[in-house]
Design a protein around this nucleic acid. Sequence first.
DNA 1: CGCGAGCATTGACGCTGGTCAATCCTCACC
DNA 2: GGTGAGGATTGACCAGCGTCAATGCTCGCG
Lengths: 267, 267
Amino acid sequence: MNDAVFSPGSCWKCDQCAINHRSICRGASEEALRELGRLSHLRRFEKGQVIIAQGDEADLVGNVISGIVKLTNMSMGGHQNIVGLLFPSDFFGRAYADLARFSYEAATDVTLCCMSRHAFENFLGRHPDMEHEILLSTLDELDATREWAAMNSSHTTMQRVATFFFILSRRSDHVFCDAQKRHRMTNPVIALPIGRRDIAAYLGTTPETLSRNIQTLVRKHVIRPIDTNHFELTDTKGLIEHSGETREDLVSMSRADRPNEGFTDQA
Amino acid sequence: MNDAVFSPGSCWKCDQCAINHRSICRGASEEALRELGRLSHLRRFEKGQVIIAQGDEADLVGNVISGIVKLTNMSMGGHQNIVGLLFPSDFFGRAYADLARFSYEAATDVTLCCMSRHAFENFLGRHPDMEHEILLSTLDELDATREWAAMNSSHTTMQRVATFFFILSRRSDHVFCDAQKRHRMTNPVIALPIGRRDIAAYLGTTPETLSRNIQTLVRKHVIRPIDTNHFELTDTKGLIEHSGETREDLVSMSRADRPNEGFTDQA
DNA sequence: CGCGAGCATTGACGCTGGTCAATCCTCACC
DNA sequence: GGTGAGGATTGACCAGCGTCAATGCTCGCG
């Protein structure tokens, strides 16, 4: 991905944006897109930075351009609970709410297309068709969140890990990663975009249990480690079996399920 | 609640509806309300009936007038997973989707204010302000679902049970139930609106574990059983401690957290 | 009144997975 | 190359909770 095009402050246009065909901008008219271009600006956050803090009155919304943002909920024990992962083209922030109920934190270095929340709400008020787009994506997200919640409370940890890995294998499929090139692999590569701690939190478990389950899959020759964050998927059927589903097309998880051309293998 | 007003087929008006001040109808203009009245009709479903089946092309949306609807997700084991409970004034069905990703099932006898999904979508297209209302409530629901999911994956079963009971104690507060009158109680009453199986599924556990936790609370004199579905809350502080929160105002769970005048103690 | 179905409760048992602690690996920096 | 910090892995332990099975309770029906 050509980062020069997106460097903050530069005079960029939405029609050159890497994610314009996936984000909410997809449905925007010429004129709406021009206005969005005027309203928005790019910002970079580095891994670990808090973008919006839980409880804040943040006047910030926008789209993820690159990198991964985690949506977290702090519980009393100081334990950080991940309630969602935002990938490139996903919308972040919460329109029409004064206080943020969750934190948005950079899980990797990220580039965001940012807007003032109030300006964006004003924009939506003048563009019912865009508000309609937002409604559609919010409804999808609600469905996906419910499905993910159901999965988290009814599946074993191994099933969740296997499902997550399977999703990632499809997502990473079209990424021509270095490792894949070097070893002339035909098998799909599973690229873990974030650290073990975050994956564990997202799957509702601990790094230790996650690690044990990964090693079990390795021992059973379902996956083969390339480096810490990359695995070769050597037995797709086996992975699906461990996920608890019998039919491949039923395996889905949250928003990660969608193919996502904007996703890059950084982190 | 005067059921005569709502009997299906009768010539009723929205301004007499028990929930018109809470549901999406709240924000409707005179004219919009008249049209909604023309589009909608009342239907009764008895406990256990499936209103919309997962995977169906159901052309049905609307509001819950009385009773409780459970939103379920069937997993491969035939295990029924509850991803949400709909109370009176809650919207049910899924606009802008051809296939239902979840089942809607009557958890008690229910009365619904039903509309054709397509007619409703058409209506929304002509009333951007109403679509805005739908967006607001969908965003709220998304937040609530995420909070509930976080809770389900990071709290112990006892904490979830205690939280649920605490919510119900606030909800039942204003319901002047018979038991409360008979025993001249000043303590809040916890009225379980649905059976143990459904509560357990909603809290991501089993009826057995739920029962054990309830009995533990009884043994510790936090609650006192009145009948199978009613408890007296004798130690609010104790209940909050078991919920894992320290500050009362932090205890929340899903949509059940909102005060809800339309809620009646049937079932 | 007895019967049976469905639900709630209780007990016994075993396993998944969380916790604590030690070791190892990777990598940035000196 | 050495060093230290942060992350990943592995091991040992055991508590919480799911499962299976038995019992008790409530209610509707013959």
